[in-house]
């Protein structure tokens, strides 16, 4: 699974490029003008950019991760907390009003993405699956929260925006659910080991079948 230096370089450039593009006043203004743009476009893109950067750094950080991020536990913890923070409507509001929050957002979300990129490849399928399932459930719950809220949750945005965010989040939930279901359902069959060799392979694979 050695990655060529060129791929890593390309990933790093793409990640950094996305972050810079999102920081430009023009795109910041545009995206932060609506809730959907802010929460469903800008924030996921920041995470994605972080993911690219993290993937690019994966090989360099291999030793550190092996020691400090076994099975991706630390990285997932980091990403979960950062995402939880940005799910709070008040944080979204404050990012617009206070530069400090905005900087924290532009730094924290890419870090969360990088943490995910550094953690998923080293984790066990059980943890990865559980996280994905909970993520989809959480998105559904968020979609409901934004749709059912009796009041505006963000003072800086219109109520109609909030409904759109709810609908958009529901779409996100469906999209992730389908995307993650396609692999297990139709993914390319791996070379089929016999039971005995499969067992051996499972024992050898890092983070394979064993916990």
């Amino acid at each position: 699974m050695k990655k060529s230096g060129a791929t890593a370089g390309f990933q790093a450039a793409a990640g950094a490029g996305v972050i810079v593009a999102l920081m430009l006043p023009f795109s910041r203004g545009r995206l932060e003008a609506t809730l959907v743009g802010h929460v469903l476009v800008q924030m996921p893109l920041l995470v994605l950019a972080g993911w690219l950067l993290g993937s690019a750094l994966a090989e360099k950080l291999e030793r550190v991760m092996e020691q400090w991020n076994r099975f991706g536990v630390a990285g997932f913890t980091f990403a979960i907390f950062v995402m939880l923070f940005w799910m709070v409507p008040r944080s979204v509001d404050t990012a617009i009003a206070h530069t400090g929050y905005e900087i924290f957002k532009f730094a924290g979300l890419p870090c969360a993405g990088a943490a995910l990129a550094l953690s998923f490849p080293r984790t066990i399928p059980l943890l990865a699956g559980a996280l994905k399932a909970h993520f989809v459930s959480m998105l559904a719950v968020l979609a409901w929260l934004y749709t059912a809220a009796p009041v505006r949750l963000c003072n800086s945005y219109l109520a109609s925006d909030q409904k759109m965010l709810g609908a958009g989040t529901a779409l996100f939930a469906c999209a992730f659910a389908i995307y993650w279901a396609l692999g297990p359902l139709f993914g390319l069959p791996k070379p089929q080991p016999t039971i005995a060799s499969g067992a051996a392979a499972a024992r050898e694979a890092p983070g394979g079948a064993r916990i």
Partner: peptide
């Protein structure tokens, strides 16, 4: 990480009491 970011989250929601600007 959980400790530090948990504290940040605690701060950012006034101890899980205010999740919106209005609530704050």
């Amino acid at each position: 990480i959980a400790g530090i970011l948990g504290a940040v989250l605690w701060q950012g929601t006034s101890g899980l009491r205010a999740f919106t600007t209005e609530g704050l």
